Simulated assay, not measured.
Amino acid sequence: MSHELLLYLSKTVGLIWLMGFFVIVVIRACNPSRRAAQEAAARSILQDGEGPQ
Results as ranks from 00 to 15, higher is better:
Gly51Pro: 00
Ile27Asp: 05
Pro52Gly: 07
Pro32Leu: 02
Gly14Val: 02
Tyr8Phe: 13
Gly14Trp: 01
Leu7Trp: 06
Ile24Met: 12
Leu18Trp: 08
Arg35Pro: 00
Trp17Phe: 15
Arg28Ala: 15
Cys30Asp: 10
Asn31His: 15
Gly14Arg: 01
Ser33Glu: 15
Gln53Trp: 14
Phe21Gln: 11
Arg43Ala: 12
Gln47Thr: 07
Val26Trp: 07
Ser2Trp: 00
Lys11Gln: 15
Ser44Asn: 02
Leu18Asn: 13
Ile16Ser: 00
Tyr8Ala: 09
Thr12Leu: 12
Leu5Phe: 04
Lys11Cys: 11
Ser2Cys: 06
Ala36Asp: 10
Ala40Cys: 03
Ser33Thr: 13
Trp17Asp: 13
Leu46Gly: 00
Phe22His: 09
Gly49Ala: 02
Ser2Tyr: 01
Arg35Thr: 13
Gln53Lys: 14
Ala41Lys: 04
Val26Leu: 15
Glu39Val: 05
Thr12Gln: 11
Ala37Lys: 08
Glu4Asp: 12
Glu39Tyr: 05
Glu50Asp: 08
Tyr8Arg: 11
Leu15Trp: 12
Arg35Ile: 06
Trp17His: 14
Gly51Ile: 01
Leu9Asn: 01
His3Cys: 15
Leu46Phe: 08
Leu7Phe: 07
Leu46Asp: 07
Leu18Thr: 09
Glu4Thr: 08
Ala36Val: 05
Cys30Tyr: 13
Leu7Arg: 10
Ile16His: 00
Val25Met: 15
Ile27Trp: 10
Gln53Val: 14
Glu50Thr: 08
Ile27Leu: 15
Leu5Gly: 00
Pro52Ser: 08
Ile24Phe: 11
Met1Glu: 04
Leu7Pro: 00
Leu5Asp: 05
Gly20Val: 01
Arg34Asn: 15
Ile27His: 07
Arg43Gly: 01
Gly20Asp: 02
Phe21Val: 08
Pro32Glu: 01
Met19His: 03
Pro32Asp: 01
Asp48Met: 06
Gly14Thr: 03
Cys30Leu: 15
Phe22Gln: 10
Glu39His: 06
Glu50Lys: 11
His3Gln: 15
Val23Asp: 03
Glu50Trp: 06
His3Lys: 13
Asn31Leu: 14
Met1Trp: 04
Leu7Cys: 10
Asp48Arg: 12
Ala36Cys: 03
Val23Glu: 06
Glu39Arg: 11
Val25Arg: 14
Arg28His: 13
Lys11Tyr: 09
Phe21His: 09
Ala29Ser: 15
Glu50Arg: 09
Ala29Arg: 14
Lys11Ile: 07
Pro52Cys: 05
Leu46Ala: 06
Ile45His: 08
Leu6Ser: 05
Ile45Cys: 04
